[in-house]
Each structure stands twice: as structure tokens, then as C-alpha cells.
Amino acid sequence: MSVGLVIVSHSVQLAAGVVELAAQMAPDVVLIPAGGMDDGGIGTSLDKVMTALGLADTGAGAVVLTDLGSAVMTAESALEFMGNPDTVLLANAPLVEGSIAAAVAAQSGAALDVVCKAAETALNPVAASPAGGTATALPSTADAGEAGAVTAVVTLINPMGLHARPAAVLAGELGAMDVEIEINGVDGQSVMMLMTLGAGQGAELNISATGPDAKRAVDLVRREVEAGFGEI
């Protein structure tokens, strides 16, 4: 049971497209589109949003993502009709990036507020790293990088490199750990940032992690990369 997502858009096709995209990285998350009006025209429908909310919340709550202005207002109105339940959060986030970041977080089993936060920091994922926890960094097991960091250098061997699916796997697993981890200088817990690396086959990944789970995190990345993310 994970947090579900409701994708509210003026367009039936846009909502369905965002669901299709996010589902690739979050196969187990309930993603419900609420696009267009009741007759399928451009607009947003309170009915559709409320129905979607009922479907998306399977017990762990739901996060609502919206496109333009009146979609936000319709979503807010739906929540007001439902008495503003604690189990639904409205993310103030870009629709596409926010939906993907939230879906990945939900897939990793994150709690409602964490999933919402993942959406809201999708365009600035470094700021989304868990606060605190850095004071207890373990001694380094490898030399390089900042003092106290666990580091490693690995080479991508799978043909497609660090594309969307492996990025989601890494970000999801790392996101569940108590670690600050950078891969080639970006936040390893952010699927969006990992994808911006554009790291293809043969590319080197410089990993540096601090925090209680630093060693576990680096080992996980090494293991996944060396296994070609199960793609070879």
C-alpha cells in the first residue's frame, strides 16, 4: 500500500499522458487521471476529481497534482467539499516533474508528506534532501572527496546507461535511506537530477555519501550499476 496520486489537468489527454509517464517509474503506485470536463472537453470537473480521490487513496493517503489555475481551484474545492481531510495533500508543484518525483517517492514507500514534498521540490531536488543527520557521518572507508564521506567510482555497463527506469530505482532505494549522497555532483535521491546527468554506457559515476547509511547506499549503487540494473 503506497500513497496514491491524482493528476488533475484541463485536458483528458494531458492527465492520461502524465499518468502514463509516471507509471513507467512507479509500477505499483495508484495513479488516477482526472483530466477534462465530464463530457471530455477542456476544463476541470469537481466530479472527476472527487471520484479520482476516492480511487487513489487506498489507505496511505493521496497527493493531488494540478496544471493551470482553475485546476488548482477545482482541486481545492473538492478538498473543501470533503472537509479538508488529513489524508489528501495538494502539491504546489510543476505537473510533469512533480508527478514523476512524487510517483517515485510513493513507489519507494515514502509517507504522504514526503511524497508531497518530493513533488514540491522536483525542480530543486537538492533542497529536498533529508535535513540533518550529517553530524553522525561514518568514518570514510575510501579516500577521496570530503572528509568522512564514503566514495566510489563505478562505470555504467548497461547499453542505455542511467535512463529513466534505473534512475527511478536508484532514487527510490536511496530515498528510503538516511544518507546524503551525490552522484556526479547531483542528489542521488532525486530521479529528476539523476536523469539530467544524461550518463550513458561507459560513463563513470563518482559517488560520495555521508550519513548513517552512507556505506549501504554506496554499496547499493555499485551493486546496481555492476549488475547493469538487471538490463543485461
Partner: peptide, 21 residues
Amino acid sequence: AMTLMSKVGGAAGPLYGTAFL
């Protein structure tokens, strides 16, 4: 309120809908 929020489609739906609600 419920009808306007469901049927208007644009921003006027939630705005007038919320007013009536």
C-alpha cells in the same frame, strides 16, 4: 455550488461554486 463546480469547467466554476458553498 456542487453543480457549478462540476459543470462550468473554467475558473468561474470553483469561484462561484465556493461562493455559494
